[in-house]
């Protein structure tokens, strides 16, 4: 089996989609979408871009299965780490990330 070998047409379509997704992400931000939905849309678009880059630019679609296993397992571990940590931070009482105020004022001049 030949690994890789994207055609010019595939490359053109891949990057047209990627540029469109960048513009889409920018338009959503400039449209004033905020809060949870802004985060959801932005991260979803970035995830979609990752999928396109991995499948076509990194030629995962035409790679052997052993590479596919690595490419699937690694993001799952990443997702697990991010989700569990954020859930922990959201739900633990008392909040774990309270940072005590630091005195950053400049030292007073000597009398």
């Amino acid at each position: 089996m030949n690994e890789g070998r994207s055609s010019l047409k595939t490359i053109a379509i891949t990057y047209a989609v990627l540029y469109l997704l960048v513009v889409g992400n920018l338009v959503v931000a400039l449209a004033g979408v905020s809060g949870f939905w802004a985060l959801f849309v932005a991260v979803s678009i970035a995830g979609l871009q990752t999928l396109v880059v991995a499948l076509f630019s990194m030629e995962l679609l035409r790679s052997r299965r052993s590479i596919g296993v690595v490419a699937v397992v690694a993001p799952l571990f990443v997702l697990l780490l991010v989700c569990l940590t954020v859930v922990d931070v959201y739900t633990r009482q008392p909040p774990p990330l309270e940072v005590p105020p630091v005195d950053r004022s400049l030292p007073s001049p000597p009398p």
């Binding site: 992400n25 931000a29 004033g32 979408v33 905020s34 991260v43 990752t50």
Partner: peptide, 14 residues
Amino acid sequence: LFLWPLFYLLRNPA
């Protein structure tokens, strides 16, 4: 592609 939205796009007030 992840850093860009997290540090430049997510700026709108809730």
